[in-house]
Design a protein around this nucleic acid. Structure first.
Length: 269
DNA sequence: ATGGCATATCCTATATGA
């Protein structure tokens, strides 16, 4: 089973890119962020025609997340991150597909920092950590994926020098990331590619794509039940090289849901 | 310190993103 996360930077503008990618890579589940469209503007018909069922949560101009499932309808679990009823931003969706629980998230960028946007980022991160704590030891396989807007370490960016003051590299942001992983989550890309740099985002400025000056900010985290089934992980970089591409590339994992989970007690022989 | 580019909307301007 292949599950991908893709910040499309405008689902209407990027529809042709999205459809080409779905056709070529055939992910079983695709989590999208930055729809930048209202619910009624989501191109559900075209996506259905491509063979995917979908859940989506839109918002005017900004944010917006969706979960696509090939040949079936994702079963909705929740449409918001718990913990703040007043939070109006469309940044979280959770669904079940073939017994896999998938959380699709778009963590706030947080720039400029310091300031209210950075405070919102950290508060949202705290809510994510609290919710993730209820999932990490679930008897069900769980994947939390999306645009986390965090560069975990300096090895996850081409050169941290000009980004030192950016919200994505702040010690507070990284501390939240570390606390999340410490619950017992597996960072799929880091697990399978511990040495070579892997990037998922290249900004539109200064020919960053042409220079491969990227950042790793799109992540897929596996809970304890799912982690033993991790088989492969990667980035579909060819999508970033297309004309008028999103500044993010789809990032994915392949998992075997039938793999036995790690046992808490020794197996009887 | 700024800007470089891209997207969406309240569009000869402004807010947001990372």
């Amino acid at each position: 089973m292949k599950i991908a996360t893709f910040n499309v930077n405008g689902v209407k503008t990027r529809l042709a890119h999205l459809l080409r990618w779905l056709e070529k890579e055939q992910p079983d589940v695709a989590c999208l962020q930055e729809l930048k469209a209202l619910d009624e503007g989501f191109p559900a018909d075209a996506i259905r025609a491509a063979g995917y069922g979908a859940l989506w949560k839109g918002q005017r101009s900004w944010n917006g997340v969706a979960i696509l499932a090939r040949g079936q309808e994702p079963v909705e679990i929740r449409r918001a991150l718990p913990g703040d009823e007043a939070d109006e931003q469309s940044r979280y969706l959770e669904a079940a597909v073939d017994g896999l629980v998938v959380g699709c998230l778009y963590l706030p960028n947080g720039n400029p920092q310091p300031g209210p946007k950075f405070e919102y980022k950290l508060a949202w991160f705290e809510r994510l950590i609290a919710h993730a704590a209820t999932l990490v030891d679930s008897e069900h396989p769980v994947l939390l994926c999306g645009d986390y807007n965090v560069v975990p370490t300096d090895a996850d960016i081409y050169n941290p020098r000009s980004w030192r003051k950016d919200a994505l590299l702040q010690p507070e942001s990284r501390a939240c990331w570390e606390r999340l992983l410490a619950q017992g989550w597996t960072d799929a890309i880091r697990q399978l590619h511990p040495d070579a740099p892997v990037y998922t985002f290249w900004d539109y400025f200064r020919q960053h794509w042409q220079r491969n000056a990227g950042l790793r900010i799109d992540h897929l985290l596996l809970n304890r039940k799912l982690a033993p089934g991790l088989r492969a992980a990667g980035v579909d970089t060819w999508v970033r090289g297309e004309e008028k591409a999103s500044d993010h590339a789809p990032t994915w994992v392949e998992v075997d849901l039938r793999a036995p989970a790690a046992r808490k007690r020794p197996r009887k022989s």
